[in-house]
Design a protein around this nucleic acid. Structure first.
Lengths: 217, 217
DNA sequence: CCAGAGTGGAACACTAATGTTCCATTCTGG
DNA sequence: CCAGAATGGAACATTAGTGTTCCACTCTGG
């Protein structure tokens, strides 16, 4: 099996995944036809790689998670002062682009309804099923915006408490919420005026730094 | 016309609107049946007040806009130092609750697709219509998270520049983005851990204040 | 060249939501 | 009490998206 143009499959799959991130992060309810069009493949081909919409969404989240983890590794959050590490983390996360809003949406304040996020959701059986919450939030270690943050992140923040670069009044998971919301703000700010990517990044870093450091130094 | 239980209509309408804000702010793709159920009215009745989904959405946004404006008036953003005014504004906005995420979603970074936001959108005519943008962004003065902010808000920020309570490096519309994203973060933070409403508000105010004030005072 | 993987288009049945109509019931003011 | 407003339920046609099947076409490696 897969004896011939074997690299082609991976390439097509990736193209679909990239398109899905671009399209579905902006509008989670977009049709598969739109995604296929954006990926420049036929809808048939999309279904060949991801039989159901849920498969595509799952693969997308896995991809996002993967990029997120890589970005975090690049940020070396175990080095330097807490605030320095936070700064590097923001820089790396900022470059995630669409993945940002994708992860951001995946757990807003809402219950997101019975479906899994905001899709038309032809789900077939979880309709009157009062016992939903079918483990939709059983991530492994939680790097995303919501939920409680993971140990390494918390360690970074506590390091900041100790070295005086982060206000001890701010709990680690609040710092995490804060970072994500600032990034999201930056990303959305980027869309409107003529602000350059660099300028916006500067504003984000500036604001996060200010929000996080102790009030009177 | 409307000679009899005339106040009843307004009450029902408001109940539907409130339910719509609660439901659709958490999940913009929720069905009208869910909204009707939440409002404790029949779907028929809902359609009687808002013939098409778009009518409901429009009315919802108008209601949100109205609450937003009232909150802003209560904040008296023309008084005291810039930072004080910002603080009051955040407090008032924080109490908007679901309206917050509603307004927040209404203009994320995305193009939101051809439909108007994230609904299944049985729209019937704006499909291949390249000349859409049927004035969906022709708000009057822009108080919401996106876009450029209005004069009064800008004046408040500039007052902050002058009195030294706001960093002149931060443009007014960035300050606005910042406020909104912090509020959103707070609201979503509220959903997860056992944090109390008051505690979260304190964190939000603390973070906004820190993010906005000049780096070294 | 040529077998087979990979693809795209068309057609199909199916589902869920929407929007509409009709009618029976309940509430309310005079 | 009673006329009319207001409502809710049921049934209906319509629409958009989904998932599937089938077939013709195009590459590519051996």
């Amino acid at each position: 099996m897969t004896t011939a143009p074997t690299g082609s499959r991976a390439r097509t799959r990736q193209a679909i995944l990239d398109a899905a991130i671009t399209i579905l992060s902006r509008n989670p309810a977009a049709s598969l036809g739109e995604v296929a069009a954006a990926a420049d493949v036929g809808r048939t081909t999309l279904h060949r790689y991801f039989p159901e919409r849920g498969d595509l969404v799952a693969a997308m989240q896995a991809e996002a998670e993967s990029r997120l983890v890589r970005a975090r590794l690049r940020a070396r959050i175990a080095d330097d002062t807490g605030a320095d590490a936070v700064r590097r983390l923001c820089q790396e996360y900022f470059d995630l682009g669409d993945v940002l809003s994708l992860l951001f949406r995946d757990q807003g304040p809402g219950d997101q309804g019975p479906g899994d996020s905001a899709e038309p959701a032809h789900d077939k059986d979880n309709k009157d099923d009062k016992t939903d919450k079918h483990g939709q939030n059983d991530h492994d270690d939680e790097n995303g915006p919501g939920g409680s943050c993971d140990p390494e992140f918390a360690a970074m923040v506590r390091r900041g408490y100790a070295d005086g670069s982060i206000d001890p009044d701010l709990p680690p998971d609040w710092v995490q919420s804060l970072i994500w919301s600032q990034l999201y703000a930056g990303w959305s700010y980027l869309a409107e005026p003529g602000a350059s990517r660099h300028e916006v990044l500067r504003l984000v870093l500036r604001s996060v730094e200010g929000a996080v450091r102790p009030l009177r130094r």
